[in-house]
């Protein structure tokens, strides 16, 4: 199928884009890479009356290192993130996660910001950002506000962004201490939606004790599921079999996946536990400097 008719605008500045958004109200929709929006429109699951194409807003296409953080513009292509030295050096988790997104062709078009505002619960970038922490800069005609990633995702395909707002950039803090990361995903085929994905970012002290951990699961809830309270029982601990068992138990308690044609709820629950343990373990080993090559 093809989409229903829509008006099309191609603003040259962020300000112009925001004015158009303000005018269009609920009928407006931003298009960037279009890797999710175009199929959705073609299948007529969505029929916005007004498309605001932000591909000309080159100011939103950047990756910058800034002492204690990395700033990524919303229009930055996923492929640029994948190939960025800055990301590779400071945000290893993203480097590991992005290749799981679709295929080379879709990553060349799909944007970093687009994946966040689309908020698919199985998507790799929302999951990774939740593990990394960070703030999203959201602009409207009136103001630019900052939202912590923990407060950004509301439910399936729904975020904190209002119809007159757009995501402009994302700031991601850089860990200074000994830290490690891991991302793992299981889908039925490469490039398909994840059945379950897990991301972990953790830091350890000089005695290998965990000082901070962020473990996130995707595909099991309406939004990326941050295992809250993990710091309470993991901080100060050295990784052990019993700690990993506890990870499994807590994940078992927290996830409530659903069955569909691709996998049963039971299998998703099993994967959640195993992938959580695998990513925690792998992140910890990385933090200790033990190379962990992925097959």
């Amino acid at each position: 199928m093809k989409p229903v008719k829509f008006d099309y605008y191609s603003p040259k500045t962020v300000d112009e884009a925001l004015t158009l958004l303000e005018e269009a109200g609920f009928d407006g929709k931003i298009i960037a890479g279009g890797q999710s929006l175009v199929p959705i429109m073609n299948m007529r699951l969505s029929s916005p009356e007004c498309l605001i194409d932000i591909n000309q807003l080159h100011d939103l296409q950047f990756i910058e290192f800034d002492s204690d953080k990395v700033k990524i513009g919303a229009l930055t292509r996923q492929a640029e993130v994948e190939r960025s030295d800055v990301v590779q050096k400071h945000l290893g988790l993203l480097s590991e996660a992005v290749p799981f997104i679709g295929h080379v062709q879709t990553r060349n078009r799909g944007t970093f910001g687009g994946s966040l505002v689309h908020a698919d619960p199985t998507a790799e970038i929302p999951l990774s950002l939740m593990a990394l922490g960070g703030t999203l800069h959201i602009a409207s005609k009136e103001e630019v506000r900052e939202v912590n990633v923990e407060d950004f995702f509301i439910t399936y395909l729904t975020t904190d962004i209002m119809p007159n707002e757009m995501l402009t950039e994302i700031h991601i803090p850089i860990e200074q201490e000994r830290n490690g990361y891991s991302f793992y995903e299981i889908s039925r085929r490469h490039g398909d939606f994840a059945l379950v994905a897990s991301a972990c970012q953790l830091t350890i002290d000089h005695l290998d004790r965990i000082t901070n951990v962020r473990l996130v699961l995707g595909g099991v809830e309406a939004t990326p599921l941050l295992i809250e309270g993990a710091n309470e029982w993991m901080n100060g601990e050295v990784l052990s079999d019993s700690l990993l068992q506890k990870v499994e138990d807590i994940v078992d308690e927290m996830v409530d996946p659903e069955s569909d044609i691709h996998a049963t709820a039971e299998y998703r629950r099993h994967l959640s536990k195993k992938l959580a343990v695998r990513t925690v373990k792998s992140a910890y080993e990385r933090a200790r400097g033990e190379a962990n090559e992925r097959s």
Partner: peptide, 16 residues
Amino acid sequence: YVTENFDTYLIPTIKD
């Protein structure tokens, strides 16, 4: 039929 198209009927891709 439950699998009516290639979103649910999965043939291998080049990566598989």
